[in-house]
Design a protein around this nucleic acid. Structure first.
Lengths: 211, 211
DNA sequence: CTAACGTTTGTCCAATCGGTCAAAATTTGC
DNA sequence: GCAAATTTTGACCGATTGGACAAACGTTAG
């Protein structure tokens, strides 16, 4: 009731232009943060005038809000897919791989999310303590089951999920640093394959020598 | 020559007030980002008027620059300490522990750094490709030596360092999310001990069951 | 006391910001 | 073609921003 009608009933032009604006806003917001971005920047990136943009989104915050709502769904999709069918280690390995692919293919989304969290998540705090916590708690139960069954080592499921998030999203959020440190040779397109190989080994075997 | 005199020759009051301003600016910048922070906010946090603040730092950027320069040194100190003396696994374990303690004790510094990197590191890019890369390459050689000696498993030293950075700084940069997901019970002060235990196990043994 | 120096503040400014509005241009339904 | 509805724009507004500046304040050495 508070967020307007369920069926926005938009024209074809409205849908296209709104999509154009959201795409431009993702680019601008993810690199400058919310307060660091201006409506003019977004309008220019979308190829339209500022008043024209404000015809489709009345306030700057509306753009950001729409962007965040869409983002969370796609962003949590890989975790939702983590299921009890199949081998646990394989399941976890493919979750890590999927998350790393998202960091590679959707770095702007990752940075937008990181920006929001860094600043204390003022706009999505309820979602974190609600929807997100519920989902993670749910998956923690699944993982605990695997531990009880002796399929994976006993450890803390919540921190395990955190570590997967941290290591994979690092390649999107800290991409500049990763490329700078790896240098021109190793910092090229192959860095994600290297990361995938490393992470797989880390999460499966750790660092202790085989002997 | 381009950065003025080597000895700024400041009075006692100047040193104290500059320190006060930097402390206030760390608080403000780390929570709002550079563009999201105003001189007025920093001045108020430092308990002085805006023109008075501008008497000690002529431009907003000067405060940020001074802050970043100091930050990098202390931030990289744990990695510098990573040495060839002592047992490799112990050495790595204590590096992880030190980094996690820094995330716990200096979260504002971590967020300030994360903010800068997220936005493409416009102000410290030369440092990343220079000083930072040199240091990491140096330590990568040390780690490679451990691998050749059979002391730790063979893997990519650079990505190993990335994963330590990512997992430890996650508890500072994404603190709001961590606390929200862990909930009121487990999200209290004990979360860093839990994280330390988990990370130690992850980096040493991975997830494969012991059997 | 007073001159010199370092410190603090009130006032002001130009630029930029998010957002409004009425009018013009365009598309759409008939 | 034409009228209604939709889309686009130029001009504008008040608020906020980073920063300048001169005057005032305080302190200290002589």
């Amino acid at each position: 009731m508070t967020t307007g009608t369920d069926a926005p009933r938009r024209t074809r032009i409205q849908q296209e232009k709104r999509e154009l604006i959201l795409e431009a806003a993702l680019e601008v917001f993810s690199t400058n943060g919310f307060r660091g971005s201006t409506i003019d920047q977004i309008a220019e990136a979308a190829g339209m005038s500022k008043p024209n943009l404000l015809y489709y989104f009345r306030r700057k915050e509306d753009i950001h809000e729409t962007l965040m709502q869409r983002l969370l769904d796609t962003w949590l999709a890989p975790l939702r897919e983590l299921d009890d069918i199949g081998d646990p280690l394989t399941e976890l390995r493919s979750y890590i791989r999927r998350k790393l692919e998202m960091a590679r293919d959707f770095p702007r989304e990752s940075r937008l999310f990181a920006n929001e969290i860094l600043q204390g998540a003022p706009r999505i705090m309820p979602l974190l303590a609600g929807e997100l916590k519920t989902l993670v708690d749910e998956k923690a139960v699944v993982i605990k089951g695997w531990m009880r069954a002796g399929k994976i080592a006993r450890t803390d499921p919540w921190h395990l999920i955190f570590s997967i998030w941290a290591t994979t999203q690092h390649y999107a959020d800290f991409d500049v640093q990763v490329r700078a440190v790896l240098g021109p040779n190793r910092g090229g397109d192959g860095r994600f394959e290297d990361a995938a190989r490393f992470l797989e080994q880390l999460f499966l075997d750790g660092l202790k020598p085989k002997g």
